[in-house]
Design a protein around this nucleic acid. Structure first.
Lengths: 215, 215
DNA sequence: TAGATTGTTAATCGATTAACAATC
DNA sequence: TAGATTGTTAATCGATTAACAATC
């Protein structure tokens, strides 16, 4: 079977960026090779899962008794995740969180660039505080289709999220990064990634309660 | 077996906040009862998983032919997630993201309040732009132990995250919400929730690539 | 009553873990 | 060579889904 046709499971995919950061810090320390066992120990994981995860993306096999070539691993992961070719995105809703994401330039290292923000609030449009353009909602269609933008980020209040999603999809967006707690209804060929802070908090505080009970 | 002793699986726990937002919007529409089937349809899930999830938290059983009492569900979930008793938290690293989280008051509806921020940068300390106090790093120990703070949020640059985590844990924090891409090493009785935007982006852009390929 | 819906059990599915021959 | 580590297969585990008797 052709390797490209085997899809990596989401569970594995989620671990890949973590591996990258470990490999980079090992490289900084001057290491040239790393074994699945060391990776697993550093990340509190199982060596089998590491070996399987890496098998999805490596271009050269690991060496028995030596491990994997760190430089090669880094190159493979960056290529796999597309960190070298910048993808354009837009963000809708330039409130506190939206403005922080809009003006955060760290995304470029993840192959990802926010080219403009949109807001309904006149006072935020072209506000001097932000280095990037903030435009009125009416211009979403134009900017997205003109620049062939495929990724939209939603940081509006929850009750307008669905409407914004509809607008983005109509304009040609195919992936939505949703920071509102709303569930979004989208066509089958559009992907949604929910970044639900309420969910994270629920998990964190439940686990906190449990650990406090134990000790 | 006593219900309280059966731990809810993390997969279920993650869905609970989503149910809550659906129930609230159904309530606003004037609905009194909802069936597992309707919930499942609204959230693109399976009715069995809904019934099982709810069974972990409901105080009164659903009625055959009618469904679950929405008001009761809302009360149960809010109680289960502890949305009524405010937990104090501190945040370390008041950059763009940190400042946005620090001054975001929406967390209080999730039973969660950030009482102070800490930063190494003198210019950010007690900056007028923020409504909440920003203090120097040296005061972490004092503020955390004095207020018995159990939750710490880390929004520093990646390379200081481990050090900050150590400081927080030493001061008495038992749960860490980590917004840096670094893997944190903590004692067994401390829980960590990673909010890794690089991971989310990786998942989103891979799925985008796949959906673009198909169509 | 008939039929819709619950709560729960059994079957299925997929991911994780363990085991081991192949390799250097 | 002996032993460490790979890549992969088999066993285990847990979560999801389907099925169905009990209920109103």
């Amino acid at each position: 079977m052709c390797k490209d046709l085997v899809n990596i499971p989401v569970a594995s995919l989620k671990r890949i960026p973590t591996y990258l950061s470990v490999f980079k810090s090992l490289k900084e320390k001057g290491e040239l090779y790393v074994s699945s066992n060391i990776i697993a120990t550093l990340l509190n994981e199982n060596a089998s899962v590491v070996k399987k995860d890496l098998s999805y993306i490596i271009s050269q096999v690991g060496k028995p008794k030596v491990g994997y070539d760190i430089n090669s691993l880094i190159k493979d992961i960056e290529g796999f995740l597309g960190y070298h070719k910048l993808q354009d995105a837009v963000i809708v809703g330039v409130g506190q969180l939206g403005a922080a994401l809009l003006n955060y330039n760290g995304f470029e290292q993840y192959g990802f660039r926010i080219i403009a923000g949109f807001d309904i609030d006149e006072s935020k449009i072209n506000a001097t505080s932000s280095q990037k353009r903030v435009l009125p909602l009416e211009m979403i269609k134009e900017v997205v289709s003109l620049n062939k933008v495929k990724i939209g980020i939603i940081t509006t209040p929850s009750n307008t999220a669905q409407q914004v999603a509809n607008t983005l999809v109509k304009a040609g967006v195919r992936a939505i990064w949703n920071f509102t707690p709303s569930h979004l209804e989208v066509p089958k060929n559009v992907v949604v990634k929910n970044e639900n802070l309420a969910t994270s908090l629920a998990v964190l505080s439940k686990q906190l309660q449990e650990t406090l009970k134990e000790n």
